[in-house]
């Protein structure tokens, strides 16, 4: 398990101080996740799921411990190194979509590519391809306000995958969506995992959504890990069909 560990956390501690009081959200956490896995992270509200995801994605810093991603300890990186690392290695999908409202779908998807060496034309092509993959090529000129929630989240997925990162982190990606749109999004994530071999870590508190993953990591209140439940037969979200 350790040799091809995608994610290897050792003794990760994170606490927040609020009004003089210290709240330890993650306490000496150890965790391993395999490359090519699709993990659902579940647990009660306030148990530290988002905090953990942010640490793994290099959006936040832990107080102690090692955060090894593909063999690199990102806990030791400084700000600019971490930014460059994020651009190259991780794609994020958020609950609130977080598209940039003044940009079109196409421009939103192209954004991460500005940090690569790709030419303007290549950027356009890659973004178009990513939008085709999420079934929204015909909406490329639309701004987020002109799209439905489900469509917005699919654009966000296109943005997360356009720079071809190995790791995709999704924080309650279906939390704001209706069942149908949620299924589309889950289907896409499954397809990214199966066809494109992306390692995916998805926070959710929806049991049905969690069934799309191949394993469920349970978190307890107080930032300790419970069991890791491996799903023998994940629900197939029919990702072969193009969502509309």
């Amino acid at each position: 398990m350790t040799a091809n560990s995608m994610i290897r956390l050792r003794g990760v501690t994170k606490s927040y101080s609020r009004g003089g009081e210290t709240l330890t959200v993650l306490d000496r956490l150890d965790l391993d996740m395999d490359e090519g896995g699709f993990y659902a992270l579940m647990g009660p509200s306030g148990s530290g799921k988002t905090t953990l995801l942010n640490l793994i994605g290099g959006l936040d810093r832990c107080d102690e411990g090692e955060i090894g991603i593909e063999g690199e300890d990102i806990a030791r990186m400084d700000g600019p190194e971490l930014a460059a690392w994020r651009a190259e290695k991780v794609g994020f999908v958020f609950q609130g979509f977080n598209l940039i409202p003044v940009l079109t779908a196409q421009e939103n998807v192209e954004l991460p590519l500005l940090l690569t060496n790709l030419s303007r034309r290549e950027r356009r092509e890659h973004a178009t391809l990513a939008l085709e993959m999420v079934g929204l090529a015909d909406r490329r000129g639309h701004r987020p306000s002109q799209l439905s929630g489900g469509q917005e989240q699919r654009v966000a997925i296109a943005r997360a995958l356009v720079s071809d990162p190995h790791l995709i982190l999704a924080d309650e990606p279906t939390g704001d969506l209706d069942r149908k749109s949620a299924d589309d999004v889950l289907g896409l994530l499954q397809r990214l995992n199966r066809e494109f071999k992306k390692t995916i870590l998805m926070v959710t508190h929806d049991h049905e959504a969690a069934q799309s993953a191949r394993a469920i990591v349970h978190m307890e209140k107080g930032g300790t890990l419970g069991r890791i439940e491996v799903l023998a037969a994940p629900t197939d979200r029919g990702s072969a069909r193009s969502p509309t």
Binding site: L59, A87, F92, N98
Partner: peptide, 14 residues
């Protein structure tokens, strides 16, 4: 503000 967070998450520098 939120756009700035998104840009930073995507890897844009400070």
């Amino acid at each position: 503000t939120r756009d700035i967070g998104v840009l930073k998450a995507l890897g844009f520098t400070d």
